[in-house]
Design a protein around this nucleic acid. Structure first.
Lengths: 344, 344
DNA sequence: GGGGGGATCTAAACCGGTATAGCTTTGGCC
DNA sequence: GGCCAAAGCTATACCGGTTTAGATCCCCCC
């Protein structure tokens, strides 16, 4: 196994100083076209690749981005968002010679430790902030640490184009929820429940606000709201609670597909017929949604595109120092057999 | 924002040479207890942390491990294995000051490129090999690249304790499949189908061999085997195919939970009653299994423990140069309502 | 012919650690 | 007292890049 060629080998072979090789490799002015060609040719012949760690030491740059996920692995396992999001991120980073450092932690206590460690070790040049929360502690923390970041969605209290805020890459999910609710209203439903994710998560309350506004615009009360932790278990028990009501809903909107599928399970367990006795919608449009019985009406987002956009934004932010906010195609509802007209 | 303290600052403040500080920090002999204490105290006061990139450059070590997943994001999103596995890995690495570099690629072509890049950039000190395949190209590739690795399960053709092979961390899944098949046989089923994952994956054929052996030991044919790509879509279409047979099976064993749940969907779509008309089992025992209707009998493994064990093994391999094979608690079947006696 | 001035290039410092050769100091032993 | 070895420590090279100060050269122009 031959030793890897270094910049010194290239410099020697090309008969120039190593500084000049560095210049040539970084497209900096002050290298004559002839010399540049010669250097690059020699480098190719020697199969030279600049050493990442040497570069990191010299430039204080790690050429990697971080993603810290604070979720229980059980929930993550059923969640189609992250794999697709990561695949999208990866697609961009691979080409740019960047790597993705992933951390999965159970609670938000460890989360802060991980961010501090990533920063202290200069392990990453920037991070993605997913699952924004109310009064999100990560924002001031990363500010304090001086770690660049991109948020998925806009944090509370930050207005579009705020120059002090981290760049936000947003995919508006409210049109999807509004469409789902309106779809149910159009089918004649008058009592529609909403089983949402944890309230401390921004998207849970934002979606619920959109849901409530849609119902109220139709003159309906939006009082049947149950908060869960996004697990199928809590989706199931929320459904039990709803169906046990004196006046149970005729339709339930769930915050994710696993909860909706668990809701279908509970309804079937009770001998209800879907969608005749109960209409159900999910969120995320996971692959499974199409194949459960009845096929699940769900709200589709595009996590892959989200990942790509976020990666581009973070790349721009860390290289140029600024990055504009990005708005992606909003979520939309995919109608399937789990929703139908309310029984006469 | 004050500049981070370096080893030189500590050396100066403690009145010693920087070499000695390095020695003190790496618990090497040749430092008197008094001096060591003084150095460590001063370091704490200055909030000194050794620079990762400087260390990397000097030691040719990245203090990170890699995980390359070659799966379609759609499938990954429904798969409970990886999030839990990663959480297990992480739990070990965090304490050891290591990071996890993740790559999700769509096909096995890109896979090789990613491994080459990770190696050329010395981005990681070792990798985890999951989803072993027949004649797995990653093994010779990583050998050639000189990249340490740990395999999940033992590769083909390598015997226990092979000193030339990568350390294997195994969780035997055959007892789970055998138990599932036997469970169905005990319930009186005589025509049992197996919907398996891609045949090029080692675990798919291994599980099918265990399945076939169990049926044959009971004097039953094991001829109903359908290969899929692990998607719910193909799980559904395999189920269609089976139910369209002149003599359809009375029970189906699926290679993962999403396919089994899709199978339930197809059966319900056709008006079959479960488990009276058809018994169904899954694999992985995802959280959702318990909450679908009927609750899904599934085979449970422990991906979290698998991740921890694999991380420990890779840590040992990269630091000491050797690591013993590890065998974890085998998989077992969790019986639920989706399996029942065959109809008289 | 001499004096800018820009382009091209070199030498050397620097990033922050690790590793090694060698210098003191101390203590044991004859 | 003298010799030797081990312990404790320093000085310095080294890892492989980037960056800066300054040297050299060439061309143009007065």
């Amino acid at each position: 196994m031959k030793r890897k060629a270094t910049i010194n080998d290239v410099a020697k072979a090309a008969g120039v100083s190593k500084g000049l090789v560095s210049f040539a490799f970084n497209d900096r002015p002050g290298v004559s076209p002839d010399t540049r060609d010669r250097i690059l040719t020699v480098a190719r012949e020697l199969d030279y690749r600049p050493s990442l760690s040497a570069r990191s030491l010299s430039t204080r740059t790690s050429y990697a981005f971080g993603l810290v996920i604070a979720r229980d692995p059980e929930i993550l396992g059923a969640d189609p968002f992250f794999p697709s999001f990561i695949a999208g991120v990866e697609r961009v980073l691979l080409q740019e010679g960047r790597a993705l450092v992933l951390s999965v932690v159970a609670d938000e206590q460890h989360e802060a430790t991980v961010y501090r460690t990533l920063t202290a070790d200069a392990r990453v040049d920037g991070v993605f902030i997913t699952d924004l929360r109310h009064d999100d502690s990560r924002i001031p923390l990363l500010r304090e640490l001086g770690m660049p970041a991109v948020t998925l969605g806009r944090p509370e209290g930050s207005h579009a184009g705020d120059p002090d805020a981290f760049p936000a890459v947003s995919l508006d999910d409210t049109p999807g929820i509004v469409a789902a609710a309106q779809h149910l209203i159009d089918l004649g439903h008058r009592r529609i429940a909403h089983v949402i994710g944890p309230r401390r998560m921004l998207h849970a309350t934002r979606r619920n606000a959109a849901f409530a506004a849609t119902l109220e615009a139709a003159g309906l009360p939006a009082d049947l709201v149950i908060e869960t932790d996004f697990t199928a278990a809590q989706g199931a028990s929320a459904t039990e609670t709803l169906l046990d009501l004196a006046e149970p809903p005729t339709a339930v909107v769930y915050g994710n597909d696993p909860m909706a599928i668990a809701g279908i399970g509970v309804a079937h367990e009770r001998g209800l017929r879907l969608p005749d006795d109960l209409s159900i919608t999910g969120f995320d449009d996971s692959e499974l949604a199409r194949y459960v019985y009845p096929a699940l009406t769900s709200v589709r987002t595009d996590p892959l595109a989200w990942g790509e956009a976020a990666a581009h934004a973070l790349l721009r932010l860390t290289t140029t120092g600024v990055a504009a906010d990005i708005d992606l195609e909003p979520a939309r509802v995919i109608t399937r057999a789990s929703t139908g007209p309310v029984r006469a």
